[in-house]
Nucleic acid binder design. Structure first.
Lengths: 152, 152
DNA sequence: CATAACATGTAGCCTCGGCTATAATTCGCA
DNA sequence: TGCGAATTATAGCCGAGGCTACATGTTATG
């Protein structure tokens, strides 16, 4: 339990375990980041373009197409998308659900940043990175503030 | 230049390039995340415990020690830390500078979240993930709001 | 002062998410 | 209708960041 008896100072060591838990959470979040970005993008492409093609995804993400192909295979393995050789990509129910959640998060985070005076461009940029790391509690706080600043 | 002439719908395609740039930025940010976490943690350990040992870092991060050893080697290669076999770890000038920046970011993000009504625990948790993705502009907006909510 | 307990290092494995180069398909259009 | 161009797939590479198992140092203390 208490590991700092033999070497090193007593060190207070207030919350090593909690800190570790936080870092672990971030690492886990990072594992789903790519998936969230893909399904969100795929949903958007299906909406606006009628279908999601690997080449488009690669263009929008700024990566090479083989990267997309490999990632899509992973997403399919994980039950988020369906795809057959040389055909466009579809979302499964789980994929659509994840896309919806991501979309909502993204909109709230970006909207919030704009509401507190961040420029549109920066808001979009930062939202892309931040959206994967905000808890529901924080998201709710963001919504509250958006609403409060709205009616003016 | 315009790649959507032959196949696929015209698609409006408003800002594929900008979107790609945003994603690229997030990927780059992610490459420095681990480094930031390490130097920030090392700085903290040196301050509170007098020295930074690999075992402590592993405990605080919630990873196995070999992971820490390997990462420290990378950080040393990149000029952020100094370490010799079986001795504790030191920050270089660059490492200290990065640690300072990270610490400041972390404090601002966490403080901001608390200021808008997020619980302390959640604020700390979310700050850990969010801090790596907020631009200076957003950070400034956060500070403004902290200050505005302070004097009450 | 010897040794057990703990810290550190090494070897070797894995997955993810990038890449380039090359092969295979599909589709638009002449 | 058939061919060339664009798209998609495959092979094989890389580094980051995880892990376990095992080897080697260090140190506290009996």
């Amino acid at each position: 339990m208490n590991a700092q008896k033999t070497r090193g100072q007593p060190v207070s060591l207030p919350d090593a375990e909690r800190q570790a838990a936080n870092f672990r959470r971030v690492r886990e979040a990072h594992q789903t980041e790519v998936a969230e970005d893909y399904v969100e993008l795929i949903a958007g492409l299906i909406d606006t373009a009628g279908e999601a093609r690997a080449a488009d995804i690669a263009r929008r993400l700024g990566v090479a197409h083989p990267t997309v192909v490999k990632t899509i295979a992973r997403l399919q393995r994980d039950g988020l998308v369906e795809s057959q050789p040389y055909r466009s990509i579809f979302l499964t129910g789980a994929g659509r659900a994840m896309a919806e959640r991501s979309r909502r998060r993204h909109a709230i985070v970006a909207g919030f940043l704009k509401a507190i005076g961040v420029s549109d461009e920066t808001a979009e940029r930062d939202a892309e990175g931040v959206e994967h790391h905000v808890s529901d509690e924080t998201l709710a706080a963001f919504e509250r503030i958006i609403k409060a600043n709205m009616p003016e």
